[in-house]
């Protein structure tokens, strides 16, 4: 398996620069030097809490946002080469809120045909064929193509969102919290659908979620983000079985599990550092139960920690294997 998507030292800053009166504007770094590789056919799960930069990363992957620094390469070619359309034909995006991602004044047919028209330049009969194929793929009754988005429930709308992403025949689909706006009984439908489509169409997924249980059930590999950085990455099984980074450990222990009443770790404040004034050392140091003096000086790099080359963590004092 080859690396299909390479993300190198990706950084995105917001704000900054000077006002017309010469004062500096406050600057916020949403993504700080993220490097990740995506292999063909895998599902990379990106997990993290609000403000960790996972959505900004996703938007850069599909070209909705430009990185301040760093590069994203698809099959060795820089993403921005060839323009937005060339990129959109290969990498597509599924939104968190299915209803607001569909234009309320367009019919489902208009929404699904747009990528075929503008990206693939298909003619009428080709479009008709692909529409039928898409409807079948996502279990959408073809009679519904003439309807408007408000007539659909959240689960149905999300299937339409998925169909639109697939309409352009992409290789990579970035899914940004695709099931978090849905009721639990509908979540399973969408997760099962995504799983089937991936196998049938040989897709590669970047699956972003804050829900660890969902990530564990879909991802082959997981990257944990905290405060704009990847703090741990490993094959899914390895990461959930024995995490290296204390933050990953905190996440795993905080998620409630149905049918279990667990002892919760106390003392954590749950507060992120000030993004306008980031700390010099490890961003998690303030909350970390294993913090030592050097953590506040050195911002640790993401590197392998004696659990194989595929299990890396950005931590000076990682957790031991149980």
């Amino acid at each position: 398996m080859s690396d299909m998507l390479e993300i190198r030292d990706l950084t995105r800053r917001f704000g900054g620069g000077r006002t017309i009166f010469g004062t500096t504007k406050p600057q916020l770094t949403a993504v700080r030097g993220v490097s990740l590789d995506l292999k063909r056919g895998e599902t990379l799960g990106i997990v993290g809490e609000s403000g960790c930069g996972k959505s900004t990363l996703a938007r850069m992957l599909v070209g909705l946002d430009r990185p301040s620094e760093g590069a994203i390469r698809l099959d060795g070619k820089d993403l921005t080469e060839g323009g937005a359309k060339a990129l959109a034909a290969r990498v597509q995006y599924v939104f968190q809120d299915p209803v607001s991602s569909l234009n309320p004044r367009h019919t489902i047919r208009q929404i699904l045909e747009a990528p075929m028209k503008h990206l693939l330049r298909l003619n009428g009969s080709e479009r008709k064929k692909r529409l039928a194929d898409l409807c079948e793929a996502v279990n959408l009754n073809p009679d519904f193509l003439v309807r408007y988005p408000h007539e659909f429930s959240g689960g149905q709308a999300q299937r339409i969102g998925i169909a639109r992403a697939l309409a352009a025949e992409p290789d990579v689909v970035v899914l940004d919290e695709p099931v978090s706006a849905l009721d639990v009984s509908v979540q399973a439908q969408v997760l099962n659908l995504l799983d089937r489509l991936k196998r049938e169409r040989d897709l590669t997924y970047v699956f972003i979620s804050h829900d660890l249980a969902v990530i564990e059930s879909v991802a082959t590999r997981v990257a944990v983000m905290y405060f704009g950085r990847v703090v741990e990455t490993a094959p899914s099984r390895k990461l959930f079985a024995a995490p290296l980074h204390p933050y990953t450990d905190l996440l795993l222990n905080s998620a409630p599990v149905p049918g279990k009443q667990r002892l919760r770790a106390g003392g954590d404040t749950g507060e992120l550092p000030d993004p306008y004034n980031p700390p010099s050392g490890c961003a998690f140091a303030e909350r970390c139960p294993r913090v030592e003096e050097d953590c506040r000086r050195i911002d640790p790099p993401l590197e392998a920690k004696a659990r194989g080359d595929d299990h890396r963590a950005a931590c000076l004092h990682p957790l031991p294997a149980d």
């Binding site: 599909v62 991602s101 234009n103």
Partner: peptide
């Protein structure tokens, strides 16, 4: 700034 505009951009418009 609505999501359906982002979606249209990704549809090649």
């Amino acid at each position: 700034r609505r999501e359906f505009v982002d979606a249209a951009r990704l549809s090649g418009k």
